[in-house]
Amino acid sequence: MAQMTMIQAITDAMRNELKTNEDVLVFGEDVGQNGGVFRATEGLQKEFGEDRVFDTPLAESGIGGLAIGLGLTGFRPVMEIQFFGFLFEVMDSVAGQMSRWRYRSGGTQTTPITVRAPFGGGVKTPEMHADSLEGLMAQTPGLKVVIPSTPYDAKGLLISSIRDNDPVVFLEHMKLYRSFRAEVPEEEYTIELGKADIKREGNDVTIVTYGAMVHASLKAAEELEKDGIDVEVIDLMTVSPLDVDTIVASVEKTNRAIVVQEAQKQAGIAANVVAEITERAILSLEAPVLRVTAPDTIYPFASMEDSWLPDHKDIVATVNKVVNF
């Protein structure tokens, strides 16, 4: 075991995959010699060479096309989009092309690509860096969308994503990159995609969440415990497809739930979680399923982040609403 930050765990996962499978290629803007703008690919080019880890011209759409072409010729591309706000430049390659390739070829051709990208607020980035756009990806058939919240999860989920034979969008929350260290096994391990993790067991209310909001929810749960409210926190880890079984089993136990996301109310995936709970467990519910989200504006100017982003206080207030419904 070693103490790692999430970014170190991510680098470790890529190193492991570069080592175990020579078809794995890592590329993007500044991921080579520079080791990535967040050091996610630090040392990888030196260890594996320029043929395996390399820089690209500054063009996201081209990077997406490159990944697809490499996938068609037998490689396992791990492409990086420097910030997920730049997704729009490469939306066709991701949502119009790689997501559909197996289907359009009747299952005869595959594009086993992992799209890595940082996102998320709280670090005062300039415009179009922090936006939560996972909702767009989750609406695209043919993609899986993974969002880890801990160093341990990040390593196991990234190894699974790279080994998956279909495209996976792997979103890394910038605020979680170096905010804490945790025990991460040095050897390889995988975490199944599409499975949620119960980060805190509880009996009174279920919080379904992901990304940085997992930590805000855990903090809220501690405060609520002081008031005698026993909260269960489910970290989705994969936001598409949802682990409906884990969500429903929890709601059937607690009879109350909220969904917490950093994205705006009209975005993200919270509405989807609410719909699944309503369809499958309405008879277990003692209260409506409420959402904690950001307001439906454009992502805030940097100096406004603190009052715009949802935090543990919003979560405490919303849990109290469903408890006192």
């Binding site: 096309g65 490159l66 072409g69 010729t73 037998g74 490689f75 092309q97």
Partner: peptide, 18 residues
Amino acid sequence: IIGAQIVQTAGVALGLKR
């Protein structure tokens, strides 16, 4: 999607070369 095949071709060609 007009143009998508062009970026993909760069990738296929790189794959063949590698």
